[in-house]
């Protein structure tokens, strides 16, 4: 790790704690889906992967980050506040009247690009952005973070074919492959596996990573960003839904389970 990047493991632990704390105050938020993606977002935002300007969130010079799994990105709230996209006080008003940090993030939040949370839209919109940047001769790149469950939406596969047809190698898809949607394990519902083989057959350049090894995620993202082979790129990050929370982690119904407040308090106390 270069000297200017912070200790990513410590940062990831801090984001994990802050996400739990937000959920303690706002139980309407989706905790389990937001804990599987912690290291992905930490690597993107603190690992020197994305270029951004917190003072000008829509600056033309930014790399675009489309967060398709909106509901499962509550961990982005502490990250964006910490990086100065909005005041940290807002974290105390998540899901409260007068705040703008909702249960499903909207594009009124500085740092969010698109309307998210209705699943399966991110990749298509990101493909349009990537095509636009390509036609503008911009060297900025587009990242999309999507869940594995939302790959059930057919529009993703329309976009996957489109992106390879147009050789959009400025498009980077990160799949938070936690293996669980609302009602259980995706492999038991409608399996998307083998994901690498399927996306490769669609013309994508695919990588795999342990999605909770933040250093490995960072180096995979940097490697992906640097590669320009004429193919859109995907990183399949194997993750655990509800990671680190007993009773929640990898539980088939973790999407809709809320851990008891006392459990969250104990975890925050035990894991400073």
């Amino acid at each position: 790790m270069s000297s200017e990047t912070p200790d990513l493991r410590a940062k990831a632990h801090w984001v994990w704690r802050e996400t739990l704390a937000i959920h303690r105050r706002a139980p309407e938020t989706r905790l389990a889906s937001s804990l599987s993606s912690v290291e992905i977002f930490v690597a993107l935002y603190y690992g020197g992967v994305l270029r951004f300007d917190a003072a000008q969130p829509l600056s033309a010079h930014r790399d675009r980050c489309v967060i398709s799994k909106g509901h499962g990105s509550i961990c982005m709230y502490p990250i964006l506040a910490d990086l100065g996209f909005f005041p940290k006080d807002e974290l105390l008003r998540v899901c409260h009247s007068g705040g703008f940090l909702g249960g499903i993030p909207d594009p009124v939040i500085p740092g969010y690009e698109t309307v998210n949370g209705s699943l399966g839209h991110g990749l298509g919109v990101a493909s349009g952005m990537a095509l636009g940047l390509n036609r503008l001769n911009s060297d900025r790149q587009v990242f999309v973070v999507s869940g594995d469950g939302e790959l059930h939406e057919g529009a993703n596969w329309e976009a996957a074919m489109f992106a390879s047809q147009h050789r959009l190698d400025n498009l980077n898809l990160v799949i938070d492959d936690n293996g669980i949607s609302m009602l259980g394990y995706t492999d038991d519902i409608v399996s998307h596996h083998p994901l690498v083989e399927r996306l490769s057959a669609f013309g994508w350049d695919c990588r795999r990573v342990d999605g909770h090894d933040v250093l490995a995620v960072r180096s995979a993202l940097l490697d992906m960003k640097a590669s320009a082979t004429g193919k859109p790129k995907a990183l399949i990050a194997k993750t655990l839904k509800g990671r680190g929370v007993p009773g929640l982690e990898n539980a088939p119904l973790s999407h809709i389970l809320n851990p008891k407040p006392e459990l969250i308090d104990r975890l925050l106390e035990q894991m400073p």
């Binding site: 839209h121 298509g124 919109v125 349009g128 952005m129 095509l131 976009a159 074919m161 489109f162």
Partner: peptide, 26 residues
Amino acid sequence: PNRFVNVGIAEQNLINVSAGLALEGF
């Protein structure tokens, strides 16, 4: 040819790609 694209028989993608292009100022 650089500013025309046929997405194929894929109206969902037609809309999303159009939205993405519009976000980039087109």
